[in-house]
């Protein structure tokens, strides 16, 4: 079900697929399947670690599996979100217009990991203790910021289908989907705030996010300069 909505290209991308699709489209036959495999690989690895721990006493999940799973899923949610945010910069820098057709798939995979990350927090970490969860959201800023990222991403995931683009109209849809920038910034901040002391890793993610935003900002600037 998700597979069909995700694998066929959206209207934005579909508009570019105007050539008769008689030749096998490498985007459909090679690149998208590769993205599927790559995006599912971290989950498969986690599945193996869990199975190994349960059946063979493996220690890949560390002594604190709930914490490990939470961080692992959070890491991959952020990584894939940044890859999704890299689609437009890649198009700008390389001129590879087809890249845009991967954007929704990557965005939905990022959301998929975000959802698993939050599910792990709600189920394994807090075990549906809604009072504790609410207290976390109001009192612990890194969780507040993380929840902001989640809130930004939910409407984007919901409106990712062709039908929604039609219903909303391209312009409004594009406007709404700018919320991904807020989500990206919030996710980086969430990671930075969650680490104790001064740590490099969140700064690297933050720098990558800033770099991707900078590339976006440069293109309209160039156009303006060229026009003047």
């Amino acid at each position: 079900m998700i597979a069909t909505t995700m694998s066929d290209a959206g209207t934005v991308a579909g508009a570019q697929r105007s050539k008769p699709a008689k030749k096998r489209d490498p985007m459909v036959w090679v690149i998208k399947p590769a993205v599927w495999v790559l995006c599912l690989a971290p989950l498969a690895w986690l599945g193996w670690l869990v199975a190994d721990a349960v059946f063979f006493g493996g220690r890949g999940l560390t002594a604190n599996p709930v914490e490990f799973i939470n961080r692992y899923l959070g890491d991959w949610a952020l990584r894939i979100l940044l890859v999704a945010l890299a689609v437009t910069p890649v198009r700008i820098l390389t001129g590879w217009k087809q890249a845009v057709r991967l954007r929704r798939l990557l965005g939905l995979f990022a959301f998929f990991y975000v959802a698993l990350h939050v599910a792990n927090y709600v189920i394994l970490d807090q075990f549906f203790d809604w009072t504790a969860i609410w207290n976390d959201i109001v009192r612990r800023w890194y969780i507040t910021v993380g929840m902001l990222a989640l809130l930004c991403l939910i409407p984007l995931a919901v409106t990712s289908t062709k039908g929604w683009i039609k219903r909303m109209g391209g312009r409004n849809w594009n406007k709404l989907h700018k919320a991904v920038y807020i989500a990206g910034a919030a996710a980086c901040l969430h990671f930075f705030m969650m680490r104790k002391g001064l740590q490099y890793e969140p700064l690297v993610y933050g720098a990558i996010f800033a770099g991707l935003m900078a590339v976006r900002a440069v293109e309209p600037l160039k156009r303006r300069i060229a026009a003047s």
């Binding site: 002594a63 709930v66 504790a132 800023w141």
Partner: peptide, 13 residues
């Protein structure tokens, strides 16, 4: 409570 963690409960390893 701590700004990062409610200290009301803990997870025993």
């Amino acid at each position: 409570r701590h700004p990062r963690w409610s200290q009301a409960s803990e997870r025993r390893i």
